[in-house]
């Protein structure tokens, strides 16, 4: 496993909002088929990292390479076509559009209609509520339902690397359990996952490895099961100096 070259490599990545440094020379790697968690307190830079990888934010310096090629200058569309899907924080569904239309836009970069139809069937199987709500405006769904649709929409691009930002936020525990069960299923079937999650226990349970971010830097990294028992993880969260 350790010899396989990383699918995604982030090298010395620095991101600034005007003068504020959000990410400070971050480096990390994710191998094919791996599930990696990014944890850390609010404002640590987790979402910024995902947004930079998917091309919404341009880094000040450093590089991101995917599959051996630099994507730091690529458009969000090109990055998505390359196989990286980003399921953003707060779900960000198109509320005025129906569930079906949201899924359709999720697949807008693909032109293999038959395969897209198969994928719709697949996500409807994973989350039966999607089939029930198909013709309903996404904005009228409950938080948990919206999260399932958001995940399904991200999957509609049939990504190799799926990035999820806080999938449990504002979602009932039962639905969270369902979502994470499906994520585990996807991981088994070979999808690489980069997960940002406030719920550390959930995140580490799903992941192989994890990075702990603190004010724009990587404070800690390691195997998920090892970090689960590491008190420093909680220090990083509370902002206490070790």
């Amino acid at each position: 496993m350790t010899d396989t070259p990383p699918l995604l490599t982030v090298r010395d990545l620095t991101v600034k909002y005007d003068a504020v440094v959000a990410l400070d020379a971050i480096s990390l790697g994710i191998r094919q088929g791996e599930s990696v968690a990014l944890i850390g307190a609010n404002g640590a830079g987790k979402s910024t990292l995902l947004r930079t990888i998917s091309g919404l934010i341009r880094p000040a310096s450093g590089d991101i390479s995917y599959n051996g090629q630099s994507i730091r200058q690529s458009s969000p569309q090109a990055i998505l076509r390359g196989g990286i899907a980003h399921c953003p924080e707060g779900r960000r569904l198109f509320g005025a559009l129906t569930v079906e239309e949201n899924l359709r836009l999720g697949a807008c970069t693909r032109d293999d209609a038959a395969a897209v139809r198969r994928d719709v069937e697949r996500v409807e199987e994973m989350f039966p509520i999607i089939a029930e709500r198909r013709k309903q405006a996404a904005g009228t769904l409950s938080g948990g339902e919206q999260q399932m649709v958001a995940l399904a929409r991200a999957m509609m691009s049939s990504p190799r690397l799926l990035m999820l930002d806080e999938p449990s936020l504002g979602v009932a525990p039962l639905v969270t359990k369902l979502i994470f069960a499906q994520l585990a299923e996807m991981k088994r079937s070979g999808t690489t996952i980069l997960l940002v999650e406030q719920n550390v226990k959930l995140a580490l349970a799903l992941s192989d490895r994890a990075y702990v971010l603190r004010t724009g830097r990587i404070a800690l990294e390691g195997e998920a099961h090892a970090l689960a028992d590491d008190p420093r993880v909680f220090h990083a969260y509370l902002g206490v100096n070790e």
């Binding site: 919404l56 953003p88 960000r92 999720g106 807008c108 691009s157």
Partner: peptide, 23 residues
């Protein structure tokens, strides 16, 4: 049409529209 739906999507949330791969 996908383009028309995309326009409404972009009007609602430009960043999310970019994330689903709309140009």
């Amino acid at each position: 049409t996908t383009t028309g739906l995309g326009m409404r999507a972009a009007a609602e949330d430009m960043a999310a529209a970019a994330l689903v791969g709309l140009d």
